[in-house]
Amino acid sequence: MQEHIRQLFSENIQTMIATGESLAAPLENAACVIVNNLVSGGKVICCGDGATQALAHHVAQLLLDQFETERPCLPAVALQAQNSSLQHNHQLDYLARQIKALGTSNDVLLVISLTGSEPCLIKAVEAALTSDMKIIALTVEGSGELSGLLNQQDVELKVPSQRRARIFECYTFLLHSLCELIDITLFPQQEDL
């Protein structure tokens, strides 16, 4: 069992290294897109489906409250999960309906997808595009339908792995890195920490 444990750590490290090599420039670009939108008076709207919904709430809270150091609150919101109060015919567009109600062209949609084929996330991206929002998408290789919706102004952070556990671990690290990049750009005095 200990050998298996070491193998898990090794797999995580290898996935993180591959992700760092392939996503350094897109991650920087994503931070710049969010910073520019925040400076222009926009907000970050975060969404996920299933397990990634927890990550959406986590990153929204880090932006709204603080990441590692005290700083002013940044406007961010995580979309609500589907609940029983929504009528049956709105089951797949519950995120899109929230984006239509809350999103503006100054905002950024941060969408977190484990497959790229979740119908509710695809509809959310379509709604964001209709509202002229910029999109930052955390995706995986083979996430064709969601990836295919993205425009030139959007940023895709595509993790080079097929194992959901490794992907989720990378997503958490990417989101924490994104928060740090936003903080050191908006509040450079915090960079020394």
Rank of each mutant, 00 (worst) to 15 (best):
Q189S: 15
E141K: 10
E156N: 04
L186C: 08
V159S: 06
G144M: 11
T185P: 07
F187N: 10
D183E: 15
T130E: 14
R163V: 10
V155S: 00
L149R: 09
V125G: 03
K158N: 14
E141F: 08
V125A: 13
A165G: 11
G116M: 01
L178R: 01
S161W: 01
E118T: 15
I167T: 07
L150G: 03
P188G: 00
G142P: 01
E180I: 08
L150N: 05
L150H: 05
M133Q: 05
L149G: 09
L129R: 14
L186N: 08
I167L: 15
G148T: 09
G144Q: 14
Q189L: 11
F168Q: 11
L174S: 01
P119A: 13
F187D: 07
A137E: 06
A128N: 05
C170L: 03
A128C: 07
I122S: 01
K158V: 13
E169L: 03
I136G: 00
Q162L: 08
C179Q: 05
A124D: 10
A137Q: 03
T172Y: 13
L178E: 03
T115K: 11
E118H: 12
Y171P: 10
L178T: 02
T139G: 10
G144C: 11
L129W: 10
Q189R: 12
L175A: 03
L178S: 02
V155R: 00
F168M: 14
I182S: 02
D154N: 03
E156W: 01
